[in-house]
Amino acid sequence: MADTKTMTIKISRYNPEKDGEPHLELYTIPWSEKTVLLDALQYIKDNLSPDLSFRSSCRMTICGSCGVMINGVPKLACKAPLREYQEGLTVEPLANFPIERDLVVDLTHFMEYIQALKPYILGNIRRPSDGPNKQTPEEIAKYHKYSMCINCGLCYAACPQFGLNPKFLGPAAITLGRRYNLDSRDKGKSERMEKINSENGVWGCTLVGYCSEVCPKHVDPAAALQQCKVDSALEFAASVLNCKKKEASHGNKA
């Protein structure tokens, strides 16, 4: 192994029982052209620092567990080859989330927001005996891109608005809401739009667009949010008109 290349990487460490705040520690690891950051983290845990905490599962950009900040940019550790970081590598936990320990962050808010947008088919009264609920390729194409989300949270780490206001429902949750709003089998749009129209809904977004840049699955949440804004604005106009109609009808009755 004389020709094994080595690299020194900085990793943010934080043990809430001992440390006042996170600090960087240096680790020297062997690497090759095929080594990704997740391999390096596992090497450190196995050989250098067994108490290093990080999340991972599939190792192939499917589960979305291993999101970290690499040199300040949200990335999946399993999709970050070390050969691209030969000038230096600093690994920190995902930004905008509370840190639990080392590279593990508390994703409770994120999970709650995804649940709030009800990302599943609503109001479809079909039964299994009715047979498959067929869709045309055009109907699938409407939402297909938005269904690629793996809930990795990189878009939340990239979103400056979520950083400023943690109550903002954020890119992934609203994109998932949009995905089901566009699904021809779904009848729950009005339920989701209540959340999307709200104070901390889609209007928290100012179209910075960084969420779409960092998305490892090219979901383009920024586009989904812009489309939601158009929907929300049309609903707003409709609600104003409906109010006037209701007032007029009440007036007539009186």
Binding site: K167, K195, N197, S198, N200, W203, K229, A233, A237, S239
Partner: peptide, 14 residues
Amino acid sequence: MDEKRTCEPIFWAL
């Protein structure tokens, strides 16, 4: 969670 509708759509449309 705050469900109050915001009047932001007016300003966003303008």
